[in-house]
C-alpha cells in the first residue's frame, strides 16, 4: 500500500483529487516504517515503499526502475552529501539529495541484488 506521490499540502486535498478514501492513505502512512533514502547510512539497503515529489520526476524515477517493492542499496554519498549513489536493478544511479528525500524505503537486509 503506497500513499500518493502528489505534491499537495494535505492528505485531504489528495483524497479529493483522487476520490479515494482518506483513512486508507492515513493507515498506510501510519503503519509504514519507511525512511527517506537520503537518511539511510551508506552501505544499508531496503525495499522502496513509496515515492513522493514532482510528478515528472516520479515518472522518470519509475522509468529508471525505482518502483515500489524494488530492492535498493545506498552505495555512497557525494562529498558534502548533495547526491547519493544507489545500486538498483543491477546498475548504479547517482540521484540528487532532494530526489532521494522523496524516495521512502523500508530498511531491510540487503539491497539491489544483481
Amino acid at each position: 500500500m503506497q500513499p500518493c506521490g502528489r505534491l499537495l499540502s494535505a492528505c485531504e486535498e489528495c483524497a479529493e483529487a483522487q476520490g479515494c478514501v482518506l483513512k486508507d492513505l492515513r493507515g498506510a502512512e501510519g503503519t509504514a516504517k519507511a525512511v527517506p533514502l537520503s537518511k539511510m547510512p551508506a552501505g544499508s539497503g531496503g525495499k522502496i515503499a513509496y515515492v513522493k515529489g514532482d510528478g515528472k520526476i516520479i515518472r522518470r524515477l519509475f522509468d529508471l526502475g525505482l518502483t515500489p517493492g524494488t530492492a535498493v542499496a545506498v552505495s555512497r554519498f557525494s562529498p558534502f552529501r548533495s547526491s547519493i549513489e544507489i545500486f538498483v536493478r543491477g546498475s548504479r544511479l547517482a540521484l540528487g539529495k532532494e530526489i532521494c528525500s522523496g524516495i521512502f524505503v523500508e530498511p531491510g537486509s540487503s539491497g539491489g541484488s544483481a
Partner: peptide
C-alpha cells in the same frame, strides 16, 4: 524555479 536534480546512470 526548481531544477530536476541529478539523475544519472553511472556505468
Amino acid at each position: 524555479g526548481k531544477g530536476a536534480g541529478l539523475m544519472m546512470e553511472m556505468h
